[in-house]
Computed example of a mutant assay.
Amino acid sequence: MNQPPHSPRPPDWLRPPGVAAGTWQYVHQRTIARHYDDFVADTPLCELDRRYVLETLAAVSPAPAATLGAESDDFPPLILDLGAGTGRLADPVRQLGYDVLAVDLSQSMLETLLERHGDRAATQTPAAGTILPMRANLVQLDALADAIADHAICMFSTIGMIQGRANRVRFLCHIARAVRPGGCLILHVHRRWAALRETGGMRRLLRSWIDSFRGEAEFGDATYAYRGLDKMFMHRFSEREIQSELKAAGWTVQRIDRVGLDGGELTQSAWNASGLFLVCTRE
């Protein structure tokens, strides 16, 4: 039997904090999850952030696959993958030997993740970890125990999908509580001023600033058409803004790398940067 293109969407008054109206529609659109991997397959940022995450994890902790054998009784270290989607990053991370708690609000995304990556026996790496799905709103992660995870990743500007500074700081506070002392958070955000390099970007920035001045939105908020949705939400950050939100949640930024305009490589130039990778540790 063919599945409907979307799961029943709860009424808008049940929309959780930090979830914009367009995002609420997005998480209940089954076809987006089904075709997500194909849709982003040729996006240069996907390959760049995969390499960045794996190289950063290798630098901050020993590879668990090298220390945990198939017969070991030790538990692998745990990574929080926040906004895991269909497992685009969760699977390569678990291949290193980490267990991955894959958190996403979309039930369809998590179902697709399990279909594609849920069978540990299918892996060719004996010491590979396990992907553990968890459906949750990123702003409401009270169910996570304190110091449960070794590290956390939040990539592809997932934090930019959270509406409202207070909600983003609350999310970052949850992660600071859930990650053990000495652990790190690897984060990606879209850069606000990259709009100056886009057609019509100056006009959109001006409109965003006017809306923020009127108290109707935050400077950097935007809605746009995305795969049949007319009001997908994204917040773009200034470098100072994301550092301020991280500091408010108890994170210390150890490293910032700029992502080039095409998303396929890093750059030293702020003018040519579309986004930022940040590596943070707990204070």
Rank of each mutant, 00 (worst) to 15 (best):
A178G: 09
I175S: 05
R88P: 09
W13A: 04
D119V: 04
W271V: 01
P92C: 00
D104E: 07
R180K: 15
C280T: 05
C184F: 09
L45V: 13
R255A: 00
R255V: 01
Q25I: 04
H190K: 15
S72E: 03
S274T: 02
Y36S: 00
P44N: 06
P77I: 09
N137W: 10
E265T: 05
D104A: 08
R192F: 11
P4A: 14
W24C: 06
P4D: 04
H190T: 09
A217D: 08
W13T: 00
N137I: 06
A102Q: 03
L138S: 07
H151V: 01
R50E: 01
A41M: 05
R197I: 03
R135Y: 09
G220E: 02
I256E: 06
A121G: 11
L96F: 10
R192M: 07
L96N: 06
R197Y: 05
A59P: 12
M1A: 14
G118F: 14
Q25E: 02
V179N: 13
R51M: 01
N137V: 06
Q243D: 04
S244K: 07
E218V: 03
C184W: 09
H35D: 00
G264C: 04
V279E: 11
F75M: 08
V53H: 10
R50L: 02
G118Y: 12
D73E: 10
L96V: 01
I175K: 12
A41P: 08
L82D: 02
M161D: 06
Q243W: 05
L205E: 00
R170T: 10
T67P: 02
R214A: 09
R135Q: 15
H117M: 03
T23A: 11
D257Y: 04
Q268N: 08
H35E: 03
G69M: 15
L196V: 01
A145R: 13
A20R: 10
F233Y: 15
Q95H: 08
R236P: 06
T267V: 10
V253A: 02
V189E: 03
L187K: 13
E216Y: 08
R258A: 02
C154I: 11
L110Q: 03
L54N: 05
T199K: 15
